[in-house]
Amino acid sequence: MYNEPIFLKPVFKDRIWGGTKLREEFGYEIPTETTGECWGISAHPNGPSTVMNGPLAGKTLDVLWNEHRELFGNQEGNDFPLLVKILDAKTDLSVQVHPDDAYAREVEGEAFGKTECWYVIDCDPGAKLVYGHHADTKEEFKQMVEENKWDELLRTVEIQPGDFVYVPNGTIHAIGAGTMILETQQSSDVTYRVYDYDRRDDEGNPRELHIEKSIKVAMIPHEDASFSPVRTAVSDLNVRKLVQENYFTVYRWTLEGTAGKIDNPHYLLVSVIEGQGEINVGDETFSFEKGDHFIVPSTVSRFGLRGNARFIASHPTVL
């Protein structure tokens, strides 16, 4: 039986809005000076993570899902369901929206649509997000887009470090400049751009927009998603359940000392966003530090933690 955490090597993505904070804050070896995304836990074909330790070292996460389903509680499905990223938004991301599962499968051939959520690791003072809009009908939305009434259409909210934002499919949204987030999402790479500040690509061409598809999948009128965070504790581990919904359950863990007996009823995706320490499985000890991403497989029923650190942890929701 596989009895250790699975540490993963991330995949990095160059983005027009990216910068260098993934290197400065996490010590990653980024490929460009405009690196916007770290895909820390990914089995998506556009960037699967690679196992770094143990007898499965060198295999990618999609291969583990296909060949070693026991590590994931023998969960059904052809595709690994979640994707965990860290995003460095040096400048504004495009205003965008994502489809639901049915639309993504029918129109894009993707396994999943995209519901996501964001934990704000850090941001500049006064940083903002686009979250929702002010149109009451699809006709009104389309008219305001055609008339470039973006200030009237888009709803903005200020953020600060430690904020959490839940973004169901169909939500018009954008991450603002000067923001670093950890994103937990369905394993999908389908994005429809509504507005991109008239930016151009490296060849001087306007970036592609997807207005018609956006209007088809957008939530109109907008409604804020409701969720209720819950606090619990395991010894020196403070656990805050940030959201539990149909696709994922996400937690913020704060470790200040030792938590010796943590039950693992699912497989857990864990990202270290601050600090360092050790994870204990049986008689074995494995070190972790800021920027590490690992999976605690279903074959590990209980584990311990020691150190001072903050994590974002998640698992597929079992309803």
Rank of each mutant, 00 (worst) to 15 (best):
G176L: 09
T191P: 06
H133Y: 12
I159P: 02
M144S: 04
D198M: 05
T156C: 04
Y131E: 01
N169M: 15
N148S: 11
G204F: 10
R193A: 05
T171A: 04
I172V: 08
T156N: 01
Q185M: 14
D202N: 14
D201N: 14
L154N: 08
P161Q: 04
F164N: 05
I159L: 12
P125V: 14
N169E: 13
T171G: 02
I172D: 10
E139G: 03
N148E: 12
R155A: 11
I181K: 00
L153Q: 07
P125H: 09
I172T: 09
E183I: 00
Y166A: 06
E139F: 01
L153N: 08
D163E: 06
E147T: 00
S187W: 02
V165K: 05
I175A: 06
A127T: 10
K142F: 14
K128Y: 08
K128P: 02
Q185W: 14
L153R: 01
D151G: 15
E146C: 02
V167F: 09
D151Q: 14
L182Q: 11
G162A: 07
D151R: 15
V190P: 09
F164M: 01
N205I: 15
Y166H: 10
T191S: 02
D122S: 14
T171V: 02
E183G: 01
K128R: 11
C123R: 08
K142N: 12
R193C: 08
T156R: 11
E146I: 01
E152P: 03
D163C: 09
P206R: 03
H133G: 04
V165L: 12
V130N: 10
V157C: 04
V167N: 04
Q185T: 01
R155T: 13
V130A: 06
D136H: 11
Q160M: 11
Y131T: 08
E152Q: 06
A127G: 05
E147G: 08
S187D: 06
P161V: 00
D189R: 11
V145I: 13
E146Y: 06
H134K: 01
M180E: 09
A127I: 06
V194Q: 12
A135I: 04
V165P: 02
Q186A: 02
D202Q: 15
W150R: 03
E152A: 08
E139L: 02
G126A: 08
V165F: 12
Q186G: 13
I159D: 03
I181D: 03
V165N: 07
D122V: 05
D163S: 09
D136L: 12
E146D: 13
R199L: 15
A135N: 10
E183R: 08
N169T: 14
L129D: 09
V145W: 12
M180H: 12
F164C: 01
I181T: 00
A177F: 11
D122N: 14
T156D: 06
D202A: 15
P125I: 04
K149P: 06
D196R: 15
D198L: 05
